[in-house]
Write a protein that binds this DNA or RNA. Structure first.
Lengths: 220, 220
DNA sequence: TTTTGTGAACTAGTTCACAGCT
DNA sequence: AGCTGTGAACTAGTTCACAAAA
């Protein structure tokens, strides 16, 4: 059997956990690469960034054989592979719906651009906002223009930063514009059709989890 | 054996997943309560909010017997229990370190106040920001004042919204001020001592996970 | 020798299915 | 009858430990 025969096909469901870890591995490798480290073993990587060596190897092995036994992994090579696996070797254009405090902050968040994401458009319904730009220069369109702007700018990811009451409607609009990946900052659960990937980044849930651990830890 | 005998003690480790789900259940119950629904069964709750009935029952059963067989759960009563379990029946004061775009947006995010969190202080190092306030009125202090302000305002949760290069230093300062729960928005992994709960809300990882699913789904 | 890649073992998390209570 | 609470069964995820490769 050739090594590639057991690589995952496009129809396999790879877990969210693995996807997140690949992103973390990429960041570690980028840091190493920028300081000129040429090779690293899974155990050195694990030790340096508080990860688990076996898990790194297993995660990578889903996608191919990138290492050399007895040596480890080539940092720039593995970094390139990970960028490809994560789809970061193509242009990724992002739209943010909701030009409130959070939407505007996300639009100008420098971390996104650094990693190769282009925030190309903001959307809102308020007449006072439509036609303006974020401080960083991202134009604010009317939500009515969403489909047109998404098509014209080849936008592949939509971010929802509107109040909960509007979120499902916005999600529907985003989906019907052809976008198949949504990052949702609004509280509450949204429904999207199969084939659309929804990722929740619910800030209130995060804070309440912390509150939960404080309440548990302090009571004893 | 009394029912309470199997309740979890403070030293038990309850998973992050359960904590997040409790927060979601609370939001569902708050929505039901505000529309005057008096009782709900686990299966009705599951159906309405796309959850799993057995999981709801099992999650709740860790903390007590809140339901009535043949009837279901009292909405206001279960809501009150959940608020207690999540520690939301006490005052929770929050500090945000980093008064950039993201920090300022989080400080004025209405969702936090709605759920009972008080964002009482922002911190930064820039002379031009210290002494100012967010649009919503949260005062910006010098990071040097952190320990003093944390103690005086009984702050129990710290939010990190600074660039990656400063994040570990900020985390250390937060920990040494006595805070035991941190929500980290900066990329990269931070180390905190045992007994301090760190929750990462890494925006780049979220976007890259979505990119990964797009790359997988579109290649076939 | 060193370190990968990976089956096997283990651990955590979820769902089933039903006894037992109302 | 209806629904909870929960052991048992199942599924997913992690870690171990070692054969195979360089």
């Amino acid at each position: 059997m050739s090594p590639s025969a057991k690589r995952r096909s496009a129809t396999d469901q790879v877990s969210d956990l693995i996807a997140s870890r690949l992103s973390i591995y990429l960041r570690c490798l980028s840091a190493l690469d920028s300081t000129g480290v040429p090779k690293i073993s899974s155990s050195a990587l694990a030790h340096q960034f508080h990860l688990n060596a076996a898990q790194i190897r297993k995660d990578l092995a889903y996608f191919g054989e990138f290492g050399v036994r007895g040596v480890g992994y080539s940092v720039p090579e593995l970094r390139r592979h990970l960028r490809g696996i994560l789809g970061l070797d193509r242009q990724i254009n992002v739209a943010i719906v909701g030009a409130g405090n959070l939407g505007l902050a996300l639009a100008d968040y420098p971390g996104f651009r650094q990693e190769g994401f282009n925030i190309v458009a903001l959307f809102d319904t308020l007449a006072g906002k439509v036609g303006e730009r974020s401080r960083g220069g991202v134009p604010i369109h009317d939500v009515k223009e969403l489909r047109r702007v998404v098509t014209r700018n080849k936008i592949s990811i939509g971010v929802i930063a509107v109040p909960a009451s509007a979120a499902q409607l916005v999600a529907n609009t985003i989906v019907s514009s052809g976008i198949r990946a949504i990052l949702n900052f609004s509280p509450g659960s949204l429904s999207v059709p199969a084939g659309v990937k929804l990722k929740n980044a619910d800030l209130t849930v995060s804070l309440e989890s912390l509150s939960f651990f404080l309440a548990r830890g302090n009571e004893g």
